[in-house]
């Protein structure tokens, strides 16, 4: 019996150990190291000696480019969170109602989620929204006599948002649709029967008073995930807008700016870490606030 216990401990560590070690080594150590670096003047070094206290933090908060990148993020999430939410919910409602070929439609809409952000960004940049006359969108608009537009280079009006938002919408709507579908399938049919008996009109009224409230927990999770994903936006921005000489000052989310500060030729690891810590704090505060506000973890329709 004793042998059994020690065996279990051994096997626990055999299975958990590598992952725990990996997590510590590749996540927690760098994380803490980054916090440590943020208090030093760390140009081109990860073992700095020049302690500057909160100097990097104040410099970062005074840096107009960094604060405007936070603004960029806010604008981006204002676009992308409601748009993805509405689109994926709409898709889920439609697919849910389809009687035949449901598996087919589900797969078709889910498929883009399997595509890499980099690949999709390049397709959007090079073939759909290419600025010259042979880009797909410009070709189609050209049939109607519309002048060619440089989608990613025009700042008035900011057409680049159209490219950035559509690529992410296409990539992630299918994934959230699946989450909503799972939520829809858990709603008891009896509720709809009761609603019908009580005289609720099918369509908007049923959606407003039965479906939508019943999806509360799913909605909260989806919005939370969408906001965090928006915070982490990097791939499509970088691949759509960067060039050999850097990145334009518009549509520059915090991670892209920090990437250039800390990991570009600048290698200002102290400032970069300070920015990363600020960003992490903002994400933490927003998430906690959101979770309390929406009551994350409460049961459906509590």
């Amino acid at each position: 019996m004793r042998r059994r216990v020690s065996d279990n401990t051994l096997w626990f560590w055999v299975f958990v150990g590598p992952f725990a070690a990996g997590l510590a080594l590749f996540t927690y150590v760098p994380l803490l190291w980054s916090v440590y670096l943020s208090f030093f003047d760390a140009h081109n070094t990860v073992s700095p000696t020049d302690f500057v206290g909160f100097g990097n933090y104040t410099a970062m908060l005074r840096d107009g480019a960094f604060t405007s990148s936070l603004g960029t993020f806010a604008v981006f999430s204002l676009f992308i969170v409601p748009a993805t939410y509405a689109l994926s919910l709409g898709l889920a409602l439609m697919v849910h109602r389809v009687r035949r070929f449901q598996a087919f439609f589900r797969s078709v809409f889910f498929l883009p989620a399997a595509c890499s952000y980099v690949v999709a960004a390049l397709i959007w940049k090079m073939s759909l929204f290419s600025g010259v006359r042979f880009g797909l969108v410009n070709t189609v608009l050209g049939w109607f006599g519309v002048e060619q537009t440089a989608w990613l280079s025009t700042t008035h009006p900011p057409w680049y948002w159209l490219v950035i938002v559509t690529v992410r919408l296409w990539l992630q709507a299918g994934f959230y649709m699946v989450l909503f579908l799972a939520g829809l399938q858990r709603i008891s049919p009896r509720l709809y029967e009761a609603a019908a008996v009580d005289g609720a009109r099918p369509g908007w009224q049923v959606f407003r008073y039965i479906t939508f409230p019943q999806l509360r927990a799913t909605s909260v999770a989806v919005v939370l995930l969408l906001v965090i994903n928006a915070f982490q936006a990097f791939d499509e921005f970088y691949n759509l807008l960067s060039d050999a000489r850097g990145y334009p000052p518009y549509a520059r989310p915090p991670l892209v700016y920090l990437y250039y500060t800390a990991l570009g030729q600048g290698q200002n690891l102290g400032m970069g870490s300070a920015g990363a810590v600020i960003l992490a704090l903002i994400i933490a505060v927003v998430t906690v606030f959101q979770a309390r506000w929406f009551g994350l973890g409460r049961k459906e329709a509590d």
């Binding site: 000489r245 000052p249 250039y260 600048g266």
Partner: peptide
């Protein structure tokens, strides 16, 4: 320096 390069390039943009 690269930091100045970024600041100047943003302004020029």
């Amino acid at each position: 320096t690269p930091a100045l390069q970024t600041a100047y390039q943003d302004a020029l943009n």
